[in-house]
């Protein structure tokens, strides 16, 4: 079992220092090894559960939250917006 730790870290937006890659790979491998013991179960079916369904919500407006409140926890704001480092499209 080889795990491409660098690739996964890139997907997960985590910076795993070069020195820790090996350790992380070992740890993940030992957890994944537990999985290898699982019985082979396959199905072409989608993961639907018609026995256990949810109710939908009526389309009724409720007031939104005041903007000042919504932005209180935001690390950096400008002009009533959240701000992030410049994104080039």
């Amino acid at each position: 079992m080889e795990i491409d730790v660098k690739h996964i870290a890139k997907l997960a937006k985590l910076d795993i220092p070069e020195a820790e890659l090996g350790k992380m790979e070992k740890e993940l491998s030992s957890i994944v090894a537990m999985v290898e013991k699982l019985p082979e179960l396959t199905s072409k079916e989608s993961l639907l559960d018609p026995q256990n369904t949810m109710q939908l919500r009526p389309d009724e407006v409720k007031p939104s939250f005041p903007r000042e409140e919504m932005l209180k926890n935001v690390p950096e704001t400008a002009a009533g917006c959240l701000m992030v480092p410049k994104v080039v499209e």
Binding site: R57, D59, E60, V61, K62, S64, R67, M70, G80, C81
Partner: peptide, 27 residues
């Protein structure tokens, strides 16, 4: 053009003041 957003009860409207139609769910 539903009255509300898909997963919360905020109004679904175009052209409102920035970040004025938001709640903890849609944020």
């Amino acid at each position: 053009n539903t009255k509300t957003k898909i997963f919360c009860s905020c109004e679904n409207r175009f052209g409102a003041e920035v970040n004025s139609l938001c709640c903890p769910v849609c944020m």
